[in-house]
Amino acid sequence: MSFLGISGLAKSYGTVTALGGIDLAVEKGEFVTLLGPSGSGKTTLLMAIGGFVLADRGVISLMSRDITRLDPEDRDLGLVFQGYALFPHMSVAENIAFPLEIRRWPRPRIAARVEEMLALVGLAALAGRRPRELSGGQQQRVALARALSFGPELLLLDEPLSALDRTLRESMQRELKRLHRETGVTFVYVTHDQEEAISMSDRIAVFRQGRIEQIGTPRQMYGRPATRFVAEFLGINNLFEGRVEAGPGGRAIRTFAGLLPIGRASDGTPLVAGAPATLWVRPEHASLAPVPEAVAVSAVIRDVAFLGAHDRLVLQPDGGPELIVQFPAGEAERFQPGARLTVHLPLAAFGVLPSA
């Protein structure tokens, strides 16, 4: 059995379905992220695992033990929330020690463990400070140290970095990955930030309307989205419609850009002649120079944006939908809105969504 197993978990609030029968298996030591827009069910699932939401039906098991109806304190899980929930009247060391005191650890053992956790999160010099005397990143480290202090097998994290600025958030992402690697604790993490999920996770479960649309590694999800929602939600993507045709070389797809010799969907399933097909191509795959086995698209530039490491252009192709392309910084700075441009899209970069 999986380390954490969720089977048929459902929860409704009146006529609103928060969880529509979730099945999820998490292996020991994994970093699994629940990703989705607000109201998609990801936080409800996390709260159900923690025992703060009672499911209408379904089973949650942890290390082969059914914990579905257990109270939160009997599940012995680590929890880190968006608001940190540190005790303002306690010092950093006292906050970390609190879970150990309520578990009646001996004083010498508590002191040793607090010292160990302070070293783990790099806050030994701040042990005597109160939370109000710390930065947001330091408070987050205290919350992590407190959640890990008693040695939980599973740590639940509910958007813990959303209140931090971009630079600090990226630093804490690296810190979380380090803590996960060094402690070996299983992480289940909730976020609506796609970049955060991609950069940190072993696997991602994308939620939509109380259900999991797709689950896989970040590379699998980015490179082979299974549904239109995943293709649109996980990073910037260009989607457009075509129709499958039969030809002497097999299947091809007729699009605004011409006939593309693509015979299979991204999941490997063959395409059916005469059927509609939804194609996608990522902005970073576009090239200004001609490349082998590519389709050339002529378009009018609608917008040019400098984004630091790259330039992003919004194009309006002849007879096609809006197209977003991206080039390394400096390559496109000479272009202005209203000008005409030809970009080249490698055929190998195109994906085709599996039929519904």
Rank of each mutant, 00 (worst) to 15 (best):
T269M: 11
L100S: 06
K177W: 04
L118R: 02
A125W: 09
I60L: 14
H180E: 05
V352L: 04
L62N: 08
I253C: 01
S149N: 04
I212W: 07
A55E: 07
D165W: 07
L79E: 02
M1T: 12
A10D: 04
G330D: 08
D193M: 11
A97L: 05
P270D: 13
E195C: 07
R166Y: 13
E195F: 11
D56Q: 05
G184M: 12
A309D: 15
G250M: 06
T269R: 14
N238C: 08
L126V: 07
V188I: 14
G5W: 09
V304K: 13
P354F: 08
Q139H: 08
G210E: 01
A18M: 03
P131I: 11
S40L: 08
V142F: 06
Q209L: 12
A18E: 00
A332C: 09
R282F: 12
E153V: 01
V92N: 07
P248I: 11
L179A: 09
L323P: 12
I204T: 04
P37W: 12
R141D: 11
G14S: 03
F52K: 01
K42P: 02
P225H: 06
P152I: 00
Q173L: 03
L34A: 01
G247P: 02
A97E: 12
A305H: 14
A252C: 12
A299N: 01
L77F: 03
L4C: 04
V59T: 15
G36F: 02
G223A: 14
R302D: 14
Q139C: 12
T44K: 03
L100A: 09
G249T: 12
E175C: 03
G338V: 11
V300R: 15
E241S: 14
G210V: 02
Q214D: 01
T191C: 11
A197D: 08
F335R: 00
P290M: 00
V185H: 00
A112T: 04
F256W: 05
A147N: 07
L19P: 02
S38P: 07
I236W: 09
S287F: 02
I102V: 15
L179H: 06
A125L: 09
Q194L: 06
G249F: 11
E182M: 05
L120R: 03
S135F: 09
I301M: 11
A309F: 12
A111N: 13
I6M: 11
G330R: 10
P261W: 08
E27T: 10
S2R: 05
W280P: 00
L54K: 15
Q220R: 09
S135N: 11
R107K: 15
D318H: 12
G247L: 06
T227V: 04
P218D: 06
H310V: 13
R208G: 03
S201V: 10
M47C: 09
S91E: 06
R228I: 08
I262Y: 02
L353Q: 06
I212N: 10
S355N: 14
S171E: 15
Q209A: 15
V185Q: 00
A329H: 14
G242V: 00
V190F: 04
I102E: 12
E195N: 14
I301Y: 09
H344S: 05
V272E: 15
V188R: 06
R109G: 01
E101S: 13
R181P: 00
K177C: 13
D202I: 01
F233A: 12
F3P: 01
E159F: 07
D303K: 13
S287P: 02
